[in-house]
């Protein structure tokens, strides 16, 4: 392999590596999964949320179980409409 080819190869490899660094950014721009805007809700007490967090830790509720539970709850009808 001649010196020319080595230089070109290294240069090309560098360019590819450089482009790869921006690949995640382009991925997020083209297929955004975290585009915001970040929700600001107001009025939620921070102390209460910390309490909930420790409760989860105390009973060691798994994330999978919680997701299944919330999924099941979503399917239940809104009983308030019948009141």
């Amino acid at each position: 392999m001649s010196v020319e080819n080595i230089v070109i190869s290294v240069f090309a490899a560098g360019l590819v590596a450089f482009s790869l660094m921006f690949l995640p950014s382009l991925l997020e721009l083209m297929y955004p999964k975290d585009a915001g805007p970040r929700v600001i809700t107001g009025g939620i007490d921070i102390v209460n949320l910390l309490h909930v967090k420790s409760l989860e830790e105390d009973y060691r509720l798994g994330r999978v179980e919680m997701q299944k539970l919330s999924g099941a709850l979503e399917l239940l009808p809104n009983l308030e409409q019948f009141i």
């Binding site: 020319e4 080595i6 230089v7 290294v10 240069f11 490899a13 560098g14």
Partner: peptide, 13 residues
């Protein structure tokens, strides 16, 4: 390594 080699070969060439 890549950048160093690039400079090295640039000097050589």
């Amino acid at each position: 390594y890549s950048f160093h080699m690039l400079i090295f070969y640039a000097i050589t060439y």
